[in-house]
């Protein structure tokens, strides 16, 4: 196989785009873990339902207008649809996550660790089956909304075989600002401060007048909203929706969170990109069936040498 630098750049781009989606989901794991020390296994399936809702929106709205598909809509309307779907998916998944916390996890907050963990797995099963009944057992096509324009050769006029389309750009445009925004929110705002305080010591924070229930609900809301955004990005980028997609992506995202140091927001984002890149290069250089083995082997190596993950050393600063 002739490996050219252009090819490597291409694979790099694929890895970054996939990694961005994983990073977004990973943030939800890490936020929740940071504050209640619960691995929310249902998170991947919240993300899946985000894709399902987005799919329903982008097929239903054009059909209301009497069009055969969303790609036939005029550009401004199409942009409004994408933006509207993004907001709707974020709100839906955020509220869903809050509801899960309220009804499934809150009562178990002081129970032994295993109880909420197993509850989370149970919630995950419920959500998977909701997805199954919603869109059926087979993968469903997610319509390609954006024109297939190659930005590098077509728009910038570069002489290269590397393709970077509007779709890839959109994924980056959705994910990166959200990752940065979350970081700013946690570090710079009063609510973020309340979250960090709750993470450090729940009782002390309560004594200082912080509403613990509200802060935890807020954390779940943020995590869910990010999963919703990731759900739409996944659909737009991969053009497929499947009731089972939450499992694999959730697993990768959780791995990303652990790799980056669970509880650490920057670490989760970093972990997401690392896994995206690892998977892409492994797909490219080896038989794709080994990809998972490669990803988890690297995870083990990292945990052997840095048991708290890449950026997980600052115990006190989790949020």
């Amino acid at each position: 196989m002739q490996v050219t630098p252009e090819l490597l750049i291409q694979v790099l781009l694929i890895g970054i785009t996939n990694g961005a989606i994983i990073a977004l989901v990973a943030l939800g794991y890490t936020l929740v873990y940071g504050i209640v020390e619960l691995i929310n296994f249902a998170h991947g399936d919240v993300f899946m339902l985000g894709t399902m809702l987005s799919l329903t929106m982008v097929t239903w709205v054009p059909s209301l207008m009497g069009l055969r598909g969303a790609w036939l809509m005029p550009t401004p309307l199409l942009m409004a649809l994408v933006l509207g779907t993004l907001i709707l998916a974020m709100v839906f998944c955020g509220l869903l996550n809050v509801a899960i916390e309220r009804f499934a996890y809150r009562r178990l907050r002081n129970a032994p660790r295993l109880a909420p963990l197993i509850t989370a797995i149970g919630v995950s099963f419920i959500l998977v089956n909701v997805g199954l009944h919603w869109k059926g057992a087979s993968p469903v096509n997610f319509p390609d909304l954006l024109p297939n324009v190659n930005l590098l050769a077509g728009v910038l006029g570069l002489n290269t075989t590397v393709t970077f389309t509007l779709k890839d750009l959109l994924v980056i445009l959705i994910t990166v600002p959200l990752i940065v925004g979350l970081q700013l929110f946690v570090q710079r705002t009063r609510l973020g401060k309340a979250m960090r305080a709750t993470a450090q010591d729940r009782e002390a924070a309560q004594i200082m007048g912080i509403d613990i229930n509200l802060t935890i609900a807020l954390t779940f809301l943020l995590g869910g909203a990010l999963a919703g955004a990731a759900g739409l990005a996944f659909g737009l980028y991969n053009n497929i929706a499947w009731f089972f997609q939450g499992f694999r992506n959730g697993l990768y995202a959780f791995t990303a969170a652990v790799m980056g140091g669970i509880g650490n927001v920057t670490g989760a984002a970093l972990g997401g990109f690392v896994i995206g890149l690892l998977a892409a290069f492994s797909d490219f250089f080896f038989d794709p069936r080994w990809t998972q083995a490669v990803v988890f082997a690297v995870l083990i190596l990292i945990l052997v040498f840095r048991p708290t993950g890449l950026l997980g050393e600052k115990q006190a600063e989790r949020a």
Binding site: M1, V11, G15, F234, Q245, R248, F284, P288, R289
Partner: peptide, 21 residues
């Protein structure tokens, strides 16, 4: 015959490999 991972979210990198072949 290369085995694909049925639960992977995409096969873009694999597609690049096939393109190169």
């Amino acid at each position: 015959p290369d085995g694909i991972d049925a639960k992977a979210s995409d096969y873009r990198a694999l597609a690049q490999k096939i393109k190169t072949s």
